[in-house]
């Protein structure tokens, strides 16, 4: 097995040497910042950078104590809960709401369908900057600042999710739905028992993309969650960043590392789905 993975040594040409050197150098550039973040956490903070430039991890125990410190002495753990709840609720909401609408747009005819769909698709062209301030003002007027619903609800009507699921559901055979109708399925049951299970792959892809977008969302929580109880991970990290905070690099990087763990795990598990999901957005757009 491992032999098969090695490049065939018989074909060393200047071209292949250049190719491999380039590929490895770029790989180092791509991975180094993350590797470095890891090393900073797992290094003895007492050692000056000039002696230990954090090119590899040096102290496992300081890493653990860093993590403990960040979780207990700062508001980080609470922010983590908020971020997890925000992300899970958003994923569930986006999947439910956009799959219900996609089901109708993809498989049925009704008056006004084309116009509604066109309006939603046009919204893909409108930048976030256009809606940010007025949405904030609306949420404020509803009294939803510093609440979970204020964080989650405005992000649920995802035009992108609707577009992606509609494209996918168009491939569900009509006969499948007719068979279910003859079997006695109601309109909702068609959606629940037939369309949803058949769209599993697309739903998983959308869930992953929504996860990455929500977990990394910076600007919306920054605007809506102004009280420390409702801070998300991104805001705590940004607070550590501000010049007044006097936070040391090992604390910042520990917070960063903990924030990076969920996306990294997701990436390791769903690598193919993520890559294919993003690749397919390109070919469809």
């Amino acid at each position: 097995m491992s032999i098969a993975l090695l490049p065939r040594m018989s074909r060393i040409t200047p071209w292949s040497v250049a190719k491999w050197t380039l590929a490895i150098c770029i790989a180092i550039v791509a991975a180094f910042p993350i590797w470095w973040m890891f090393n900073v956490v797992f290094a003895d903070p007492g050692q000056p950078v000039s002696l230990n430039p954090r090119l590899y991890p040096t102290s496992f125990s300081s890493g653990i104590s860093n993590i403990q410190r960040v979780l207990t002495e700062t508001g980080y753990l609470r922010a983590y809960y908020v971020s997890v709840a925000y992300t899970i609720l958003t994923i569930a909401g986006v999947l439910l709401v956009s799959s219900m609408a996609a089901f109708e747009f993809a498989l049925f005819d009704f008056p006004g369908k084309r116009i509604l769909f066109a309006v939603v698709m046009l919204s893909l062209m409108v930048p976030m900057a256009a809606t940010l301030i007025p949405t904030y003002l609306l949420v404020a007027r509803l009294g939803w600042l510093n609440t979970m619903q204020g964080l989650v609800l405005p992000g649920l009507a995802s035009a992108f999710g609707l577009f992606m699921l509609t494209q996918f559901m168009k491939s569900i055979p009509r006969e499948m739905l007719e068979a279910a109708r003859l079997d006695g399925a109601s309109h909702f049951q068609l959606y629940w028992h037939v369309a949803l299970p058949l769209s599993r792959t697309a739903l998983v892809t959308l869930a992953i993309l929504t996860f990455m977008k929500t977990w990394g969302n910076f600007i919306w929580p920054l605007v809506v969650s102004q009280k420390p109880e409702m801070f998300t991970v991104s805001q705590v990290v940004s607070l550590f960043n501000s010049p007044l905070s006097h936070t040391t690099v090992d604390v910042v990087m520990t917070a960063n590392l903990l924030a990076a763990v969920p996306p990294l795990i997701f990436f390791l598990i769903f690598q193919r789905r993520i890559v294919e999901g993003i690749a397919s957005t390109g070919s469809k757009g």
Binding site: P173, E175, M176, E178, A179, A180, R181, L182, D183, V194
Partner: peptide, 15 residues
């Protein structure tokens, strides 16, 4: 669903 008919489709349409 209430007509008392059952249909076998060309594509089978199995779930």
């Amino acid at each position: 669903a209430r007509r008392g008919v059952a249909m076998v489709f060309q594509s089978y349409a199995l779930y």
